[in-house]
Amino acid sequence: MTPHGTADPRFDRLRDLFAANLESGEELGAAIAVDLDGKTLVDLWGGHADVARTREWDRDTIVNVWSTTKEISALAVLVLVERGLVDLDAPVATYWPEFARNGKEGVLVRHVMSHTSGVSGWEQPFVLEDMFDREASTARLAEQAPWWEPGTASGYHAQNQGHLLGEIVRRVSGRTLTQFVAEEIAGPLGVDLQIGATEQDDDRIAEIVPPPPLDIDLSAVAMDSPMVKTFTGPVADANAANTIPWRRAELGALNGHTNARALARAFSVVSRGGEVDGVRLLSKGTIDQIFREQSHGVDLVLGVPLRFGIGFALPELETLPYLPDERICFWGGWGGSMTVMLPDRGLTFSYVMNKMAPGIIGSERSAGYITEILAAVR
């Protein structure tokens, strides 16, 4: 199956790999984009947007990108940092006073940005649909006590990081995270990117195909561990992404709807010194903050070694051997979507798909694409 779009000849092997995955059914529908110093080297898409294969994945198809959304929310906070409205080293309670309850007065903004706050999920009882009520679910987070000492280790804030960051954005800017992203990031950059999705976009959203069950035996883990509490508060369901309530909610950790082209352009802000086509969102100093290492060790929720800077992960060869140990920041979504930035090379690339692969951090498919991209620009 031949992908649509364009690719510089250096990326012929990438195109061939993408075509092979579409042909074999390893991919249902997907898109890949590569930006180098503002030049689009790759803009490929192909396959189908639905399981029945009645809709082709076209140029303007968008898809739920799961935790790649966290990068969007982090960028929103960094824009406020750039404007002097948020201090990464200030307590969250500086902007959201209620958050200081139950021992969280020492939780800093950078702790939430780096998954080290100790608040990685909701105390039970809490079901997935409870996340859709932004006001009530965020108020519950303000009431909770941290599950470990803030700042001492990372514990992936799998489903709630967007609620935490979104509330900081709302308190500081007076706008919801959805509004802020639309008005301060997507609009100025001219990118097809949003938190949630509007009714008018429903007919161009790709259908999510859930992955196999996670290879994590929670019964073998202590019930009061951050891992169990995070994965059960609430229990995730990939099928939810195909529902209207999910699309209309503001889930800044989970329900960004976009495509690879938009992500590559938006995050080229990080790779290109903070400015894209005359639109400046960040300065070099703010970009440097991303690379301040906040944690490096076995994540308390995911159970694998990870390094977190501020707002993004940094390379950790033991867990992601295909990402070289250089000045790189990235994150990805459940099922394999990923966006990666290499500021020293001016390089940004993104991959999104609707057929979810096993695992939480990347996939064999994304590893293959990243390996070919890096080989092509080496």
Rank of each mutant, 00 (worst) to 15 (best):
G309D: 00
W246T: 05
G332M: 00
I360S: 09
E318Q: 11
T348P: 05
L44M: 08
Y351C: 00
V276I: 11
R378C: 02
F231C: 01
W96T: 07
A136G: 10
C329A: 13
A206P: 05
F349R: 01
G46H: 03
A142I: 01
T6H: 14
W148M: 06
T2E: 15
R327C: 03
T258W: 04
V221W: 06
D288G: 04
L22P: 10
V119I: 15
A238L: 07
G303H: 05
G233Q: 08
V298D: 13
G303M: 05
T40W: 01
S350N: 07
P9F: 01
P245K: 12
D224A: 07
A240F: 12
N259D: 06
I32F: 11
S271F: 01
I360Y: 07
P210F: 01
L14T: 11
W147F: 13
Q194L: 11
T54L: 06
T178Q: 13
C329S: 11
S117G: 13
G297S: 03
R280A: 15
L141P: 08
D203F: 14
A139M: 07
L14Q: 08
V221H: 11
D35G: 01
S271G: 09
A139I: 03
G38Q: 13
K39A: 11
A197E: 06
L85W: 06
T94S: 14
R170L: 07
S366V: 04
E167G: 08
G274I: 04
F180S: 02
P358K: 11
N259Y: 04
T286N: 08
A145W: 05
D16W: 01
E184M: 09
G333N: 07
D288R: 05
R204C: 12
V86P: 04
S295M: 04
A249D: 05
F99D: 10
R378H: 10
A7S: 15
R110L: 00
R170W: 10
G155Y: 09
G155M: 06
P234G: 06
K284E: 15
E143Y: 04
S337P: 11
R134P: 01
L85D: 10
E199P: 05
